[in-house]
């Protein structure tokens, strides 16, 4: 297996695993989002969706473990790349000209990623732990919708949620097209299309996720 070690630890290997895990997370987000959007259907629909997920608990558990592994590889590799890449330029430039040759979101993947990670921890603590009745924050019998609604009434919580979703959009915008470049899938005909799809997808995901706290805070809460 030493060839695999060499491969995994090479600069291209690290990038490849960043890409594979990244695209998996992008796919996961899509399913997560579809479930979330059922909140707009009202308490009954959302609570049924969650109950349905409850009924396939073992499968959900397996997916969760796989997801956790994917996240860990993505985060571990990301941190490693960040540290190693810092070391590759020990003395910085006095004048930083990077704004003239690259986009800000491509240069700040580590920063957006870190804030998304903080968001993820808070998010899991609030929702995943409560939905699974772990720890103190219990939910009244199957009142998932009501729990979500009351959580988002907190403007600070919702504000941070929206902020994190904007960063997620930026992170995805670079990540999406980056995956194709990393896999070596570039083509004169298709790369421009992929870039556009990536941007649309990122904007859509950010807006769609962020619409939920906004809805509960202003529209539901405003009633």
């Amino acid at each position: 297996m030493s060839w695999f070690n060499t491969f995994f630890n090479s600069s291209i290997g690290k990038k490849l695993f960043m890409g594979i895990t990244g695209i998996s997370l992008i796919l996961f987000l899509k399913f997560h989002l579809i479930n979330n959007l059922s909140l707009f259907g009202g308490p009954e629909i959302f609570n049924t969706v969650v109950k349905n997920l409850e009924s396939i608990k073992p499968l959900v558990r397996v997916i969760e473990v796989v997801l956790a592994l994917i996240f860990l590889i993505h985060i571990f590799n990301g941190i490693r790349l960040w540290i190693e890449n810092k070391k590759a330029r020990p003395v910085k430039y006095a004048v930083n000209g990077s704004s003239k040759n690259s986009t800000i979101y491509s240069r700040t993947m580590a920063q957006t990623g870190s804030i998304i990670f903080i968001f993820l921890v808070i998010h899991l603590r609030t929702f995943w732990m409560s939905f699974n009745s772990i720890g103190v924050v219990g939910i009244e019998e199957h009142k998932y919708y009501e729990f979500v609604a009351s959580t988002f009434l907190d403007p600070i919580y919702s504000g941070f949620y929206v902020f994190a979703m904007i960063l997620l959009g930026l992170h995805l915008n670079h990540g999406f097209q980056s995956v194709f470049q990393t896999f070596g899938w570039t083509h004169k005909k298709y790369t421009p299309i992929i870039n556009v799809i990536g941007t649309i997808y990122s904007i859509f995901v950010a807006i769609a996720f962020a619409s939920i706290p906004i809805y509960f805070l202003f529209i539901q809460g405003g009633k």
Binding site: T6, S10, S11, I12, K14, K15, L81, E84, N85, K87, A88, R89, S98, K100, N101, S102, T103, S106, R107, M109, H174, Q177, S178, Q181, T182
Partner: peptide, 20 residues
């Protein structure tokens, strides 16, 4: 690629500053 990594060049993160 092995030599490039060994010499301490960083890893590409697709910012495309190089091309510019």
């Amino acid at each position: 690629v092995a030599k490039m990594d060994e010499l301490g060049f960083g890893s590409c993160t697709n910012t495309y500053a190089c091309e510019a």
